[in-house]
């Protein structure tokens, strides 16, 4: 019986996320995502998919789902950075596509 209780407790412990995000972490991730997206918008390089991820992060944060909020915010940050990178890269490579 004791073994079963220990086993159940162990399983319950293992089923928890290894690194559950805290509210502060989610908040920081959301702030970073918003800053990255602002930069992308200023560069006229933003993607609609980044906006979707950011919106999902805000909703999850409002619902106190810190893990979800952090994951979505991290995704938004990554996409915003990629969009700026794309824009910078295209400043020179677009010439390769010109019909001559």
């Amino acid at each position: 019986m004791i073994r079963a209780i220990i086993l159940a407790a162990g399983l319950a412990f293992l089923s928890q996320p290894a690194f559950a995000a805290t509210q502060a972490e989610a908040e920081a991730a959301l702030a970073a995502a918003q800053a990255a997206e602002s930069e992308a918008i200023a560069a006229k390089a933003a993607w609609t998919s980044t906006e979707t991820a950011l919106s999902n992060a805000r909703k999850a944060f409002a619902a106190a789902k810190w893990d979800e909020a952090k994951a979505a915010a991290d995704e938004a940050t990554a996409q915003a950075k990629l969009s700026v990178e794309q824009s910078n890269e295209q400043k020179t490579v677009w010439r390769n596509a010109v019909i001559r």
Binding site: Q90, K91, A97, V98
Partner: peptide, 21 residues
């Protein structure tokens, strides 16, 4: 304007030219 037409944009990474040339 020419740069905009030939520059790849968006998450799909396509330009105006990618579809219309």
């Amino acid at each position: 304007g020419k740069e905009f037409f030939y520059s790849r944009k968006g998450q799909l990474g396509v330009s105006c030219a990618s579809c219309h040339m």
